[in-house]
Design a protein around this nucleic acid. Structure first.
Lengths: 221, 221
DNA sequence: GTGAAACTTACGGGAAACCGTAGCAGGGCT
DNA sequence: AGCCCTGCTACGGTTTCCCGTAAGTTTCAC
């Protein structure tokens, strides 16, 4: 079992249960912090002291409070940590279920495991740690399923830019100016109309209001 | 301290840390389930056995899986539980932060406390239980803040009907027919326009799209 | 270089939404 | 009753949006 594990998780209760799970697995003193900046500091100090951590377990999203932080989320933390200690194993433990986000964690951040906060997260944490001990990657099984049922329209950057502008209150006819300023192509008014029509058609909507509500529901804005 | 507490929470790790918190507070054997239907069964059995629970701690949203459930969420569970045991104290522990949702829990379901899953949720759980022991209501402080900055328009039934119709895709000009059929007055097109304008003016919006997004955020639709 | 295809943009007619005004109905008051 | 006040509705002009068509641009193959 890993001897030195660091937990970065802002929710107090989640942090506690992570500690409990790890002690059950045989890590005598799992260490834990509630802020990303603290996590990085501890990792640096551990490297300096010649006793680096074996594993970092971190959440993805940390809530802001009065303590201003340089590092705002788990992805940034992992990036910074790997600069200090490239061989550090990393396990992400978060409620995020969007495949695009998780895929990029594996591909770009080279994380070793991802467990979604969900029904059987305790079991899966144990399996994940076992896998990582054997230098394998791990992804909790509830996500492998979720990946398939995704038959909805996948929104491009342009789509999201258009919808965001609508939600900001920009009149449709002014959106081309915004897109030009931000070097998003295409930027013609007709293209915007066409894009909106496409999205509404795929999803079976007739009005922008429906589209906005849908996007709010699935969380892309 | 409460002697008999039932936890309904589908996330394994959250469930574990709730148990731990409660034992620290002096409840010897907090009982726990992972499904709402089980929770109701246990409550019924406890009443029959003459040893009813003192407190129910429940999440709001439960994820569906292969076990088909009759009761899908915490709100329904509370309603069903109070029919069996009206004096049951209830504490909701969830990640939900929309004020409209939480307000309705207090007003309509008469819950005794709400703690949001967030940074200091462990502390707040303890405070909540202490308050409920004294027959007081409790709301975790991170939400009190959110509530004050809320100088918003309070939405009437008419407002919500109009917005709902927009989200359904009904063209504005057809909404009068819908309102007449449902005996909602006023129902004139001008009144609808006036009402939409008022809402947007109060909230500083210029377009329906903004209004829809706002209503989704605060959870009234 | 030429042409075809795909994509982007421009334009114009018609529908919907927006906005101010005026007319109408009901309630309360003298 | 007569009057005022309030709120609902109806109407017309302007703006925005919707949608089909046509013209321009880029890409790629031959």
């Amino acid at each position: 079992m890993f001897k030195r594990i660091l937990i970065a998780e802002d929710h107090e209760t989640q942090n506690i249960s992570l500690q409990k799970t790890l002690t059950e697995l045989g890590t005598e003193k799992p260490e834990y912090v509630f802020y990303c900046d603290d996590a990085l500091t501890w990792i640096k100090n551990a490297v300096k002291a010649g006793q680096p951590y074996d594993l970092l377990i971190t959440d993805l999203y940390f809530e802001e409070d009065h303590n201003r932080q340089k590092i705002m989320g788990g992805a940034e933390l992992i990036k910074a940590a790997k600069e200090v200690q490239p061989n550090l194993k990393t396990l992400v433990f978060s409620g995020e279920s969007k495949t695009a986000v998780i895929d990029s964690l594996f591909k770009e951040m080279h994380i070793d495991g991802y467990v979604r906060k969900a029904r059987h997260d305790g079991q899966y944490l144990k399996l994940a740690i076992a896998a990582i001990l054997n230098h394998k990657k791990y992804l909790s099984p509830d996500l492998k399923l979720a990946r398939k049922e995704n038959n909805s329209h996948d929104f491009s950057d342009l789509d999201i830019a258009i919808i965001s502008q609508l939600v900001e209150g920009t009149p449709q006819k002014n959106i081309p100016y915004y897109l030009q300023e931000n070097n998003i192509k295409p930027s013609g008014l007709s293209s915007i109309e066409k894009r909106l029509n496409l999205m509404k058609e795929v999803l079976g909507f007739s009005k922008n209001e429906q589209l906005i509500a849908y996007c709010k529901d699935i969380g892309i804005i």
